[in-house]
Design a protein around this nucleic acid. Sequence first.
DNA 1: GGATATCCCATACTTTCGGGTGATTTCCGG
DNA 2: CCGGAAATCACCCGAAAGTATGGGATATCC
Lengths: 158, 158
Amino acid sequence: MAKLYKQLFSQFGWTILLYGLGMGLLLVVLQTARYRFLILDHAQELYFGLIALLFTGLGIWAGRQLTARLAKPTKPLSGDALEQTLAKLGITPREYEVLQLIAQGLSNQEIAGRMFVSLNTIKTHTSNLFSKLDAQRRTQAVQKAQAIGLLSGTHPKV
Amino acid sequence: MAKLYKQLFSQFGWTILLYGLGMGLLLVVLQTARYRFLILDHAQELYFGLIALLFTGLGIWAGRQLTARLAKPTKPLSGDALEQTLAKLGITPREYEVLQLIAQGLSNQEIAGRMFVSLNTIKTHTSNLFSKLDAQRRTQAVQKAQAIGLLSGTHPKV
DNA sequence: GGATATCCCATACTTTCGGGTGATTTCCGG
DNA sequence: CCGGAAATCACCCGAAAGTATGGGATATCC
Protein backbone atom coordinates (compact mmCIF):
# COMPACT_ATOMS: atom_id res chain seq x y z
CA MET A 1 0.00 0.00 0.00
CA ALA A 2 2.75 2.40 0.94
CA LYS A 3 4.53 1.27 -2.17
CA LEU A 4 1.66 2.27 -4.39
CA TYR A 5 1.46 5.65 -2.77
CA LYS A 6 5.16 6.20 -3.23
CA GLN A 7 4.97 5.29 -6.88
CA LEU A 8 2.02 7.56 -7.46
CA PHE A 9 3.64 10.42 -5.65
CA SER A 10 6.91 10.10 -7.49
CA GLN A 11 5.00 10.14 -10.70
CA PHE A 12 2.64 13.00 -10.14
CA GLY A 13 4.58 14.99 -7.59
CA TRP A 14 2.71 17.76 -5.90
CA THR A 15 -0.08 18.03 -8.38
CA ILE A 16 -2.47 15.79 -6.53
CA LEU A 17 -1.58 17.25 -3.19
CA LEU A 18 -2.06 20.78 -4.38
CA TYR A 19 -5.30 19.85 -6.04
CA GLY A 20 -6.69 18.35 -2.87
CA LEU A 21 -5.62 21.35 -0.85
CA GLY A 22 -7.17 23.76 -3.32
CA MET A 23 -10.36 21.80 -3.35
CA GLY A 24 -10.72 21.78 0.39
CA LEU A 25 -9.80 25.43 0.67
CA LEU A 26 -12.32 26.49 -1.91
CA LEU A 27 -15.08 24.56 -0.23
CA VAL A 28 -14.29 26.10 3.12
CA VAL A 29 -14.15 29.58 1.67
CA LEU A 30 -17.42 29.13 -0.12
CA GLN A 31 -19.07 27.73 2.97
CA THR A 32 -18.02 30.55 5.25
CA ALA A 33 -18.78 33.12 2.60
CA ARG A 34 -22.24 31.73 2.33
CA TYR A 35 -22.97 32.31 5.99
CA ARG A 36 -21.41 35.74 6.00
CA PHE A 37 -22.46 37.70 2.98
CA LEU A 38 -24.95 35.90 0.84
CA ILE A 39 -27.78 34.54 2.85
CA LEU A 40 -30.16 35.40 0.09
CA ASP A 41 -32.63 32.64 -0.53
CA HIS A 42 -32.58 31.70 -4.17
CA ALA A 43 -28.87 32.14 -4.57
CA GLN A 44 -28.34 28.40 -4.61
CA GLU A 45 -28.38 28.11 -8.35
CA LEU A 46 -25.72 30.75 -8.54
CA TYR A 47 -23.62 28.80 -6.11
CA PHE A 48 -23.96 25.59 -8.01
CA GLY A 49 -23.06 27.31 -11.22
CA LEU A 50 -20.06 29.00 -9.68
CA ILE A 51 -18.75 25.82 -8.15
CA ALA A 52 -19.32 23.95 -11.37
CA LEU A 53 -17.38 26.55 -13.30
CA LEU A 54 -14.57 26.67 -10.80
CA PHE A 55 -14.09 22.96 -10.63
CA THR A 56 -14.38 22.60 -14.34
CA GLY A 57 -11.46 24.94 -14.62
CA LEU A 58 -9.62 23.08 -11.91
CA GLY A 59 -10.34 19.81 -13.63
CA ILE A 60 -8.95 21.07 -16.89
CA TRP A 61 -5.87 22.34 -15.13
CA ALA A 62 -5.35 19.09 -13.26
CA GLY A 63 -5.88 17.12 -16.43
CA ARG A 64 -3.26 19.17 -18.20
CA GLN A 65 -0.81 18.69 -15.35
CA LEU A 66 -1.29 14.98 -15.24
CA THR A 67 -1.18 14.37 -18.96
CA ALA A 68 1.89 16.54 -19.19
CA ARG A 69 3.73 14.14 -16.93
CA LEU A 70 2.44 11.09 -18.67
CA ALA A 71 3.22 12.32 -22.16
CA LYS A 72 6.76 13.24 -21.35
CA PRO A 73 8.81 13.15 -24.54
CA THR A 74 12.26 11.65 -24.47
CA LYS A 75 15.27 11.30 -26.66
CA PRO A 76 16.41 7.97 -28.02
CA LEU A 77 18.53 6.04 -25.57
CA SER A 78 21.76 4.43 -26.57
CA GLY A 79 24.11 1.71 -25.47
CA ASP A 80 24.14 1.30 -21.74
CA ALA A 81 20.92 3.16 -21.03
CA LEU A 82 19.12 1.07 -23.59
CA GLU A 83 20.17 -2.22 -22.09
CA GLN A 84 19.31 -1.00 -18.66
CA THR A 85 15.82 -0.01 -19.71
CA LEU A 86 15.29 -3.29 -21.50
CA ALA A 87 16.46 -5.19 -18.45
CA LYS A 88 14.19 -3.19 -16.20
CA LEU A 89 11.20 -4.10 -18.34
CA GLY A 90 12.36 -7.68 -18.68
CA ILE A 91 12.44 -7.50 -22.45
CA THR A 92 14.60 -10.23 -23.92
CA PRO A 93 16.90 -9.70 -26.92
CA ARG A 94 14.66 -11.70 -29.18
CA GLU A 95 11.62 -9.70 -28.14
CA TYR A 96 13.48 -6.49 -28.79
CA GLU A 97 14.27 -7.67 -32.28
CA VAL A 98 10.60 -8.28 -32.87
CA LEU A 99 9.76 -4.87 -31.48
CA GLN A 100 12.06 -3.17 -33.93
CA LEU A 101 10.58 -5.03 -36.86
CA ILE A 102 7.08 -4.20 -35.69
CA ALA A 103 8.03 -0.54 -35.57
CA GLN A 104 9.04 -0.77 -39.20
CA GLY A 105 5.55 -1.77 -40.15
CA LEU A 106 6.11 -5.45 -40.77
CA SER A 107 3.41 -8.05 -40.23
CA ASN A 108 3.92 -11.03 -37.96
CA GLN A 109 4.23 -13.24 -41.01
CA GLU A 110 6.96 -11.06 -42.47
CA ILE A 111 8.77 -10.94 -39.16
CA ALA A 112 8.61 -14.70 -38.89
CA GLY A 113 10.14 -15.01 -42.34
CA ARG A 114 12.86 -12.53 -41.61
CA MET A 115 13.81 -14.18 -38.34
CA PHE A 116 13.53 -17.74 -39.68
CA VAL A 117 11.03 -18.86 -37.08
CA SER A 118 7.38 -19.80 -37.20
CA LEU A 119 4.45 -17.41 -37.08
CA ASN A 120 3.39 -18.88 -33.75
CA THR A 121 6.73 -18.05 -32.26
CA ILE A 122 6.37 -14.45 -33.31
CA LYS A 123 2.93 -14.37 -31.79
CA THR A 124 4.34 -15.58 -28.52
CA HIS A 125 7.06 -12.96 -28.60
CA THR A 126 4.65 -10.15 -29.40
CA SER A 127 2.28 -11.29 -26.72
CA ASN A 128 5.00 -11.28 -24.08
CA LEU A 129 6.33 -8.02 -25.41
CA PHE A 130 2.94 -6.32 -25.18
CA SER A 131 2.39 -7.41 -21.63
CA LYS A 132 5.84 -6.11 -20.69
CA LEU A 133 5.15 -2.81 -22.39
CA ASP A 134 1.63 -2.73 -21.00
CA ALA A 135 0.19 -2.49 -24.49
CA GLN A 136 -2.77 -4.14 -26.15
CA ARG A 137 -1.90 -3.41 -29.79
CA ARG A 138 1.28 -3.29 -31.80
CA THR A 139 0.76 0.39 -32.60
CA GLN A 140 0.47 1.09 -28.91
CA ALA A 141 3.60 -0.87 -28.21
CA VAL A 142 5.48 1.16 -30.80
CA GLN A 143 4.17 4.40 -29.39
CA LYS A 144 5.20 3.48 -25.86
CA ALA A 145 8.56 2.19 -26.94
CA GLN A 146 9.25 5.42 -28.78
CA ALA A 147 8.12 7.42 -25.78
CA ILE A 148 10.65 5.61 -23.61
CA GLY A 149 13.33 5.96 -26.25
CA LEU A 150 13.68 2.28 -26.98
CA LEU A 151 13.51 2.89 -30.69
CA SER A 152 15.93 4.94 -32.66
CA GLY A 153 14.67 7.29 -35.30
CA THR A 154 12.51 5.93 -38.04
CA HIS A 155 14.31 3.94 -40.66
CA PRO A 156 13.11 5.15 -44.05
CA LYS A 157 13.11 1.64 -45.42
CA VAL A 158 11.43 2.29 -48.76
CA MET B 1 -21.36 35.27 -35.97
CA ALA B 2 -22.68 32.14 -37.57
CA LYS B 3 -19.33 31.75 -39.22
CA LEU B 4 -17.50 31.81 -35.92
CA TYR B 5 -19.82 29.23 -34.54
CA LYS B 6 -19.30 27.04 -37.54
CA GLN B 7 -15.56 27.30 -37.26
CA LEU B 8 -15.62 26.49 -33.59
CA PHE B 9 -17.93 23.60 -34.15
CA SER B 10 -15.89 22.14 -36.95
CA GLN B 11 -12.83 22.39 -34.75
CA PHE B 12 -14.17 20.94 -31.56
CA GLY B 13 -17.00 18.86 -32.89
CA TRP B 14 -19.45 17.68 -30.30
CA THR B 15 -17.18 18.15 -27.37
CA ILE B 16 -18.37 21.61 -26.44
CA LEU B 17 -21.95 20.87 -27.23
CA LEU B 18 -21.94 17.72 -25.18
CA TYR B 19 -20.19 19.44 -22.35
CA GLY B 20 -22.72 22.25 -22.26
CA LEU B 21 -25.57 19.79 -22.40
CA GLY B 22 -24.10 17.65 -19.66
CA MET B 23 -23.53 20.68 -17.48
CA GLY B 24 -27.06 21.96 -17.87
CA LEU B 25 -28.54 18.54 -17.40
CA LEU B 26 -26.60 17.86 -14.24
CA LEU B 27 -27.61 21.18 -12.75
CA VAL B 28 -31.27 20.58 -13.53
CA VAL B 29 -31.15 17.07 -12.12
CA LEU B 30 -29.44 18.20 -8.97
CA GLN B 31 -31.88 21.04 -8.52
CA THR B 32 -34.98 18.91 -8.91
CA ALA B 33 -33.49 16.14 -6.83
CA ARG B 34 -32.88 18.68 -4.15
CA TYR B 35 -36.53 19.61 -3.93
CA ARG B 36 -37.75 16.07 -4.15
CA PHE B 37 -35.74 13.81 -1.98
CA LEU B 38 -33.20 15.63 0.05
CA ILE B 39 -34.64 18.58 1.81
CA LEU B 40 -32.46 17.88 4.76
CA ASP B 41 -30.89 20.98 6.07
CA HIS B 42 -27.18 20.47 6.35
CA ALA B 43 -26.86 18.45 3.17
CA GLN B 44 -25.44 21.41 1.36
CA GLU B 45 -21.87 20.43 1.97
CA LEU B 46 -22.53 17.09 0.42
CA TYR B 47 -23.98 18.75 -2.61
CA PHE B 48 -21.06 21.06 -3.01
CA GLY B 49 -18.69 18.18 -2.74
CA LEU B 50 -20.60 16.11 -5.23
CA ILE B 51 -20.81 18.89 -7.76
CA ALA B 52 -17.17 19.67 -7.28
CA LEU B 53 -16.23 16.07 -7.91
CA LEU B 54 -18.48 15.70 -10.90
CA PHE B 55 -17.30 18.81 -12.61
CA THR B 56 -13.72 18.05 -11.84
CA GLY B 57 -14.14 14.84 -13.76
CA LEU B 58 -15.97 16.63 -16.54
CA GLY B 59 -13.26 19.24 -16.65
CA ILE B 60 -10.55 16.65 -16.96
CA TRP B 61 -12.44 14.93 -19.74
CA ALA B 62 -13.12 18.18 -21.56
CA GLY B 63 -9.54 19.25 -21.11
CA ARG B 64 -8.30 16.03 -22.63
CA GLN B 65 -10.66 16.36 -25.56
CA LEU B 66 -9.76 19.94 -26.25
CA THR B 67 -6.03 19.62 -25.81
CA ALA B 68 -6.07 16.55 -28.04
CA ARG B 69 -7.39 18.69 -30.88
CA LEU B 70 -5.32 21.72 -30.09
CA ALA B 71 -2.08 19.88 -29.53
CA LYS B 72 -2.26 17.65 -32.60
CA PRO B 73 -2.18 20.38 -35.25
CA THR B 74 1.18 21.36 -33.83
CA LYS B 75 2.99 20.68 -37.02
CA PRO B 76 6.32 18.92 -37.14
CA LEU B 77 6.84 20.36 -40.57
CA SER B 78 6.53 24.09 -41.00
CA GLY B 79 2.78 24.43 -41.35
CA ASP B 80 2.76 25.24 -45.00
CA ALA B 81 4.95 22.28 -45.89
CA LEU B 82 2.66 19.97 -43.97
CA GLU B 83 -0.44 21.11 -45.78
CA GLN B 84 1.37 20.90 -49.05
CA THR B 85 2.44 17.35 -48.39
CA LEU B 86 -1.02 16.37 -47.28
CA ALA B 87 -2.52 17.96 -50.37
CA LYS B 88 -0.02 16.24 -52.61
CA LEU B 89 -1.00 12.89 -51.17
CA GLY B 90 -4.67 13.81 -51.23
CA ILE B 91 -5.08 13.24 -47.52
CA THR B 92 -8.14 15.00 -46.16
CA PRO B 93 -8.26 16.73 -42.76
CA ARG B 94 -10.41 14.03 -41.31
CA GLU B 95 -8.08 11.33 -42.53
CA TYR B 96 -5.16 13.17 -41.02
CA GLU B 97 -6.92 13.25 -37.68
CA VAL B 98 -7.35 9.52 -37.88
CA LEU B 99 -3.72 9.07 -38.80
CA GLN B 100 -2.60 10.93 -35.72
CA LEU B 101 -4.79 8.86 -33.46
CA ILE B 102 -3.53 5.67 -35.06
CA ALA B 103 0.01 6.80 -34.38
CA GLN B 104 -0.91 7.10 -30.73
CA GLY B 105 -1.79 3.45 -30.60
CA LEU B 106 -5.55 3.71 -30.53
CA SER B 107 -7.80 1.04 -31.98
CA ASN B 108 -10.40 1.87 -34.59
CA GLN B 109 -13.07 1.50 -31.95
CA GLU B 110 -11.35 3.98 -29.66
CA ILE B 111 -10.81 6.41 -32.51
CA ALA B 112 -14.47 6.17 -33.41
CA GLY B 113 -15.39 7.00 -29.83
CA ARG B 114 -13.01 9.90 -29.64
CA MET B 115 -14.18 11.40 -32.91
CA PHE B 116 -17.85 10.72 -32.24
CA VAL B 117 -18.41 8.76 -35.41
CA SER B 118 -19.15 5.10 -36.10
CA LEU B 119 -16.59 2.35 -36.37
CA ASN B 120 -17.44 1.91 -40.04
CA THR B 121 -16.59 5.51 -40.75
CA ILE B 122 -13.17 5.07 -39.20
CA LYS B 123 -12.67 1.97 -41.26
CA THR B 124 -13.43 3.93 -44.41
CA HIS B 125 -11.03 6.66 -43.40
CA THR B 126 -8.25 4.26 -42.58
CA SER B 127 -8.79 2.37 -45.78
CA ASN B 128 -8.52 5.51 -47.90
CA LEU B 129 -5.60 6.68 -45.81
CA PHE B 130 -3.67 3.46 -46.33
CA SER B 131 -4.13 3.53 -50.07
CA LYS B 132 -2.95 7.14 -50.15
CA LEU B 133 0.07 6.29 -48.04
CA ASP B 134 0.64 3.09 -49.97
CA ALA B 135 0.46 1.04 -46.79
CA GLN B 136 -1.17 -2.26 -45.97
CA ARG B 137 -1.09 -2.01 -42.21
CA ARG B 138 -1.56 0.74 -39.68
CA THR B 139 1.95 0.28 -38.36
CA GLN B 140 3.27 0.69 -41.86
CA ALA B 141 1.19 3.81 -42.34
CA VAL B 142 2.62 5.26 -39.16
CA GLN B 143 6.14 4.40 -40.20
CA LYS B 144 5.77 6.03 -43.58
CA ALA B 145 4.04 9.07 -42.19
CA GLN B 146 6.83 9.54 -39.69
CA ALA B 147 9.41 9.13 -42.38
CA ILE B 148 7.80 11.95 -44.35
CA GLY B 149 7.46 14.07 -41.24
CA LEU B 150 3.70 14.08 -41.16
CA LEU B 151 3.65 13.19 -37.50
CA SER B 152 5.04 15.03 -34.55
CA GLY B 153 7.07 13.11 -32.02
CA THR B 154 9.84 11.41 -33.94
CA HIS B 155 10.58 12.77 -37.36
CA PRO B 156 13.61 13.40 -39.54
CA LYS B 157 15.92 15.02 -37.06
CA VAL B 158 19.47 13.85 -37.68
C1' DG C 1 20.16 -32.21 -9.90
C1' DG C 2 16.82 -28.75 -9.60
C1' DA C 3 15.34 -24.07 -10.38
C1' DT C 4 15.23 -20.48 -13.82
C1' DA C 5 15.22 -18.19 -18.10
C1' DT C 6 15.00 -18.01 -22.93
C1' DC C 7 13.47 -19.64 -27.11
C1' DC C 8 10.63 -22.31 -30.17
C1' DC C 9 6.32 -24.22 -31.58
C1' DA C 10 1.48 -25.69 -31.49
C1' DT C 11 -3.67 -25.60 -31.00
C1' DA C 12 -7.78 -23.23 -30.26
C1' DC C 13 -10.37 -19.34 -29.85
C1' DT C 14 -11.88 -14.35 -30.08
C1' DT C 15 -11.28 -9.90 -31.71
C1' DT C 16 -9.60 -6.53 -34.78
C1' DC C 17 -8.13 -5.11 -39.35
C1' DG C 18 -8.30 -4.43 -44.11
C1' DG C 19 -10.64 -4.63 -48.59
C1' DG C 20 -14.58 -4.10 -51.34
C1' DT C 21 -19.01 -2.23 -52.57
C1' DG C 22 -22.63 0.90 -52.29
C1' DA C 23 -25.46 4.66 -50.42
C1' DT C 24 -26.69 9.25 -48.41
C1' DT C 25 -25.89 13.94 -47.16
C1' DT C 26 -23.65 18.34 -47.34
C1' DC C 27 -21.07 21.76 -49.28
C1' DC C 28 -18.67 24.20 -52.82
C1' DG C 29 -17.29 25.81 -57.45
C1' DG C 30 -18.30 26.26 -62.27
C1' DC D 1 -28.34 23.79 -61.14
C1' DC D 2 -25.19 20.20 -61.81
C1' DG D 3 -21.03 17.51 -60.61
C1' DG D 4 -17.48 16.42 -57.63
C1' DA D 5 -15.27 16.15 -53.12
C1' DA D 6 -15.78 15.05 -48.42
C1' DA D 7 -17.81 12.86 -44.68
C1' DT D 8 -20.80 9.59 -42.88
C1' DC D 9 -22.52 4.79 -42.37
C1' DA D 10 -23.67 -0.02 -43.60
C1' DC D 11 -22.75 -4.98 -44.74
C1' DC D 12 -19.90 -8.73 -45.95
C1' DC D 13 -15.81 -11.52 -45.91
C1' DG D 14 -11.26 -13.16 -45.38
C1' DA D 15 -6.98 -12.31 -43.23
C1' DA D 16 -4.27 -10.79 -39.52
C1' DA D 17 -3.60 -9.98 -34.85
C1' DG D 18 -4.14 -11.01 -30.09
C1' DT D 19 -5.10 -14.32 -25.93
C1' DA D 20 -4.65 -18.49 -23.42
C1' DT D 21 -2.51 -22.67 -22.52
C1' DG D 22 0.83 -26.07 -22.70
C1' DG D 23 4.83 -28.77 -24.31
C1' DG D 24 9.74 -29.35 -25.40
C1' DA D 25 14.77 -27.93 -25.95
C1' DT D 26 18.84 -25.56 -24.12
C1' DA D 27 21.73 -23.17 -21.21
C1' DT D 28 23.00 -21.20 -16.81
C1' DC D 29 23.40 -20.73 -12.01
C1' DC D 30 23.44 -22.46 -7.39
